[in-house]
């Protein structure tokens, strides 16, 4: 899932500026699961903003609504009226949700209430960790299902650097060394020979380095049959 964190109320207040009618839009998918921007958080942020702006002597009209998925336009259509009625939309979706609103409502000012952090999973209650950097050319088949691109601090492809110690990465004792994890797993599964082959330089073209990415599936496009 996409993992995000809320911005501070101060930053949100400054992003809102002098807008009077503010619509807080939560999202029912990833950011609900990571407790950053679901219906509950949207209601809390809206209430906090009403309270804070009232204390500042300029109480704003802040309401909230949550859609099932902010990153698909059809769900946004359901709240089109509320969006049109607001001066400003504060999205508690991930960066994709914010942009979906901006793109779908060209004349509406929309600001982010979250910092979209990474793609990952909850490892324990209240802890989320990064797992994938969407490099576009997955190497997990060579590394026992542990991603060296997202989880090694240097995205190394040919094994651990000299900074790996006691299972953690040189940059922080709280970060497991991805290559130690890979080594342990391949060792347990009898596949250490995978670590002996030299991996050539990665083709980063499929990653963000190739420019903004897009996938076109002709088989799924409407009107594909007529063409």
């Amino acid at each position: 899932m996409i993992v995000a964190e809320q911005k501070s109320l101060d930053e949100i207040k400054s992003l809102i500026g002098d807008a009077e009618r503010v619509l807080v839009v939560g999202c029912g998918t990833c950011v609900t699961v990571c407790f950053a921007g679901g219906a509950r958080e949207a209601a809390i942020v809206a209430a906090s903003l009403r309270m804070a702006t009232k204390l500042d002597g300029n109480g704003k009209d802040v309401t909230d609504v949550t859609v099932q998925r902010q990153c698909e336009w059809e769900y946004l259509d359901e709240i089109a009226e509320q969006i049109e009625g607001a001066d400003l939309v504060l999205s508690l979706g991930c960066g994709i949700g914010v942009q979906a609103i901006a793109e779908h409502f060209p004349r509406k000012w929309v600001v982010p209430g979250l910092n979209t952090s990474f793609m990952g999973l909850p490892t324990e209650q209240g802890v989320w960790a990064e797992r994938c950097a969407a490099c576009g050319d997955c190497v997990l088949g060579l590394t026992g299902g542990i991603c060296p691109i997202a989880r090694c601090s240097k995205s190394l492809l040919n094994g651990p650097c000299g900074g790996s110690e006691g299972g953690h990465c040189e940059i922080n004792p709280d970060i497991p060394c991805a290559w130690q994890l890979i080594y342990d797993r391949l060792s347990a599964l009898g596949k250490l020979d995978l670590l002996m082959a030299i991996q050539p330089p990665k083709n980063w073209k499929t990653s963000r380095d190739g420019g903004p990415r897009k996938i076109v599936r002709d088989d799924l496009r409407l009107g594909a049959e007529e063409e």
Binding site: G159, P160, C161, G162, E165, Q180, L195, M196
Partner: peptide
């Protein structure tokens, strides 16, 4: 002597 120590000679081989 960096970890995983057992892998170090093989990394050198690489």
């Amino acid at each position: 002597f960096a970890d995983p120590v057992a892998y170090r000679p093989y990394r050198l081989a690489k």
